[in-house]
Structure formats: C-alpha cells, structure tokens
Design a protein around this nucleic acid. Sequence first.
RNA 1: GGAGAGAUGGCCGAGUGGACGAAGGCGCACGACUCGAAAUCGUGAAUCCCGAAAGGGAUCGGGGGUUCAAAUCCCUCUCUCUCCGCCA
Length: 421
Amino acid sequence: MIDLKLLKDQPDVIRQALQRRGYDLDLDRIIQFDGKRRKGITEIEQLKQERNILSAKVAELRRQKKDTTQFVQKAKDIGRLIKTKEQDYRKIAETFDELAAWIPNIPHSSVPTGTGSESNVYVRGMKDAPHAEFEVLPHWEIGAALDLLDLRRAAKISGSRFILFKGKGAALERALINFFVDLHTRKHGYTEIAPPVLNSPDCLFGTGQLPKLESDMYRCAEDLYLCPTAEVPLTNLHRDEIIPEKELPLRYVAYTPCFRKESGSYGKDVRGIKRVHQFDKVELVKYATPEQGYDEFEKLLCDAETAVKLLGLPYRIMLLCSGDMTFASAKTYDIEVFSQGVKEWLEVSSVSIYEQFQARRAQIRYRPAQGQVDYVFTMNGSGLALPRIFIALLENYQTPDGKIRIPDVLKPYLDNKEFLA
RNA sequence: GGAGAGAUGGCCGAGUGGACGAAGGCGCACGACUCGAAAUCGUGAAUCCCGAAAGGGAUCGGGGGUUCAAAUCCCUCUCUCUCCGCCA
C-alpha cells in the first residue's frame, strides 16, 4: 500500500510511478473516491460529537433526577442519521479500498525506466556468457541418463511441470537446501524459520500477492493459499506488531516448497525443470528501519550473491527496470546464472526492497528509541531458488564423459564424493 | 468431532450500562537521593483516523445488534486453554 496522503497531496508522484511501470489505472477515479471518503468521515464524526454531547447531558440530568426526554429524542434522531450516513460511507470506503489495493509501489529513483527485460541494467558479475569446451547435455537429458530426475513419473503422479528427484538427484536437492540454510544462519546471521506453507488471505494481501496474483496461486478449501514463496509467511511473521527499534534489523531464513500455477506461461520453457508448479527455495527476509533500509538491502543482495559464488557458478547481477519489477517492489536486483546446456541466463534470485509498501498493508511498525511509531522497511531475496541451481550444476559441472562433478562446498553434504553418480 | 472456560495497554490483572482510554501491580523512560548502584520517592508514557491548526472521532480478539449512551447486555465468527473421542 502506498502512503494514502500522497493521493491527496502529491498525486503526480503516483501518476509518474504508474507511467514508469506502464500501468493503466484510473487514478482520478481513485482520488475522487478518496475525497468522498474523507468527507464522509468528517461528516459522521461531527454528528457523533453532537450525539456524545447530548448523551453526556442525559447522564448528568439522570443524576439530578431531571427529565431527559427532550435530549433523548434529539439524540435518537441524530443516531438514525448517523446510521444512514455510515451505510453510505461504508460503500464508498469499500470501493476505495478495492481500488487502492491495485496501486503499485513507487519505483526508487535509482531504478531505470523501461518496459521489459531489455531495459534492465548490468550491475556486476560476468559480462558475456562463457563458452563451453564441449557439447553439454541439457539437464533433462543428463538428469535422466544418470537417474537423477524422473520427469515422466512426476507427470504421472501430478501432471506436467512437476519435478521428481531420484537417488543422488534427491540427495543433491537436500544438500543444496542444507548448504544454503547453514550458510545464511552461520555466516550471515539469519534466524531459521520453518513456517506453515498454507497461508491465510490476509498474509497474501500483506505481501502484495493479493489481489493481483490471485490466479497464479493454488487456493485450497478453508480459504488458505499454498504459499508461492516463503516471503509470505516470513514477512507476515510480524504482521500487526510494533517492533522495538533495538531489535531491528531482523533477519530470517526459511526453506519451504513454493507453489505456483504459472498460469500465463504455457508454451514457454516446456522442457526440463526451469518452470514448475512446485519447487524448493531458501528465502531471506529482513525487517529494518527506513534509515537502515537500503544498506540492509545491499547486504541482502551480497548474502545471496555469496551463495552463487561459493557454488562456483558464472553469474551476473542485473538491476530491473521499472516495467519489469513486481507490483510491490520499489527496487529489485536479479541474480542470473548462465547454464551451458540450455544456453541462457537463469534467474536464481530476485532481491527486492518494498520500503513501507508491505508494512502498510500488513501493519508492521517499529517504535523508535524516541519519536513516532512508523512503518518498517521490508525486503527479501531468494537465497537461492533450487531448480535453476540444480540445472546449472548439472550443466556447468558436467564433464565430457557425462559425469557431474560436485562443487567443493557441497562435498561435506554428499559423502565427500568427487562425482555425483 | 463433542463438552466447557477464556480473549482488556509492553506484560499481569480489575472493571459488569453513564465521571472509563480504562484501577492496581510489574516492567520501561526521565528526574531526585547516591561516589556509583540497589532500594525509595516523584514524573511520563497506547494506537489509528479527520483536520493547516484549534479541536474532534474511533479503538477493551473481529464483525453485527440493543440503547440517548456498551469494555460491560444480545447474536455471530476467529483464536487460546482444559476434558472426552478419533487419527497420522
């Protein structure tokens, strides 16, 4: 949620943000409803004031055992008026809330303007895709050959776009999870959380998936959603709380499976495990004060980057342009790994800062040592997303004779072996 | 799934229709005392909304109702605890 004061005082800031993102939203209509809403509040509150004065008068007269009928009658009339005004107000406020929930976050000033990935800006890492010295098999071929993946049977169990890891493949998946969680808890100071992955609609509204991404998520009975990312439970951990400043920044890491319908993606990336309905991810979430915010954000990016580096994968960091960022983000970096089999840059981490956007939706605030309670800054990043790392390892650590070398950092998790199969 | 009990400020806990945004305690911050601390005494402190401000309004788990007036009465939902049953 944007700061609603902007609607009234600086609507052009929002207008410009919408334009930069390429959003088509009837802002004037929203502003109009906001005005009606504010007027309604003022009106109702004035009436309530009148009624409260009359009620106090009644109470006083009662104590003196005097007649009150005249005042009671007047208060009754006002009460009826309040009721009808409140009904009107409720309708207006409801419409306004629905409309306002669709206003995206305002991009940070350092975010380049653009409409798609071609406008993203290279930040650091490998500039050009590295060349392979031999013909590298794509992960689905080598994965099947070495019996690490069984996508046919995954499809039999659950349909297309599901993964079934097998044998050493399953062991590698588990090793990666442990490696990532250990790295972030031991070296980067994050607290590990194992959250529920069925989350309430309130949670999904809080982080900004709802209402916009309703059709991208699996909705279960009882009004619960399978979480599309651990960002959802981790950011809602402190929903409706006021955190003492001295506890900030808070850092959390969680491994969870993630569930996505990927509804718009049919026909794209059909082969292999790049785009699936269920995948594993280790997620990092931080809460910070506005002053700490952007420093902590850069550190979060470094924490994710460290994971890629330690695995020895060729990567680059891109700064997303305004049109490529998600709804709630103020600034996003992607970490991309180049994989030799599929011959493309794969997004393995998306690191975003939301400033106070999520905090306003989820009511997450902090109490400064002195001064006013204010909303925290929230941010998150994958640390990392597993399937694409799995792809990159199978393809980049492939040997000409069809084996998979194990990166040094993973050896302790895989019986200290040199090769996977 | 069945039966019962409960939900009040940072925490504990009183309040049972009108002077209650809420006693008291703990904890917290500041001040006094002290060489310093403890103890003691004093003072302060909830959140949100409308408003340029003055000021006003709202909030006692959520929602609805009764009433001139609700923390307090009624309905409903959610959650927590206890007991019984069932089951990984």
